[in-house]
Simulated assay, not measured.
Amino acid sequence: MNLQELTERLHQIRDNNDWRGFHSPKNLAMAASVEMSELVEIFQWLTEDQSRQLPPEQLAHAGQEVGDIVLYLLLLCSELGLDMDQVVRAKLADSERRFAR
């Protein structure tokens, strides 16, 4: 996945629709949270086993919500001047250091 290309494509959509004024870090964080809530809703009331074996329609819906979350986070990183690849790798390295056995 080329994060730079994805971010540029998102910026094109944003700019074509005059959404830049709405894409503050606060708004993007809130939008990502709303999409996360929509993902959580798919799993609400399911058993552990059911959550691991979603029917095709629900699995596709979950994928759409994951995509929404990732795209909002890419835009958030862009607005904050963060390199998503770098921050994710740094966090992974920290988790490996803290939790590896």
Rank of each mutant, 00 (worst) to 15 (best):
R9E: 12
R20V: 15
P55Q: 08
E35D: 08
E79P: 06
N16W: 00
K91D: 12
A31T: 12
K91V: 00
P25G: 01
L80N: 04
Q4F: 10
D18H: 11
N2R: 02
R20T: 15
E38V: 08
L76I: 08
E35R: 02
C77G: 13
D15T: 14
S78Q: 11
Q64D: 13
W19C: 15
S95I: 09
I69S: 04
D49E: 15
K26Q: 11
S95H: 09
M30T: 06
G21A: 07
R20Q: 11
G63F: 03
L80W: 03
S33D: 06
T47K: 12
D68K: 03
D68S: 07
L80H: 03
Q50G: 11
G63Y: 03
H23F: 10
L59M: 09
R97M: 06
M36G: 13
P56F: 01
A100E: 13
V70E: 02
N2S: 07
T7F: 00
E65N: 06
R14Q: 10
Q53P: 00
L3V: 01
L3D: 08
F22L: 15
H23C: 10
M36Y: 08
V34Y: 02
V70S: 02
R89S: 10
R20E: 05
L92S: 09
L75N: 01
R14C: 07
N17Y: 03
R52L: 15
N17W: 00
Y72D: 00
E8P: 02
Q53D: 06
V88R: 14
D49F: 07
M1L: 04
D94E: 14
W19F: 14
A31F: 03
L54P: 11
P25F: 00
N27S: 13
T47C: 12
L54K: 11
V70G: 01
L73Y: 11
D49I: 00
Q50E: 15
I13V: 13
R98A: 11
E65A: 02
E8R: 12
P55H: 05
L82W: 10
K91S: 13
D68N: 13
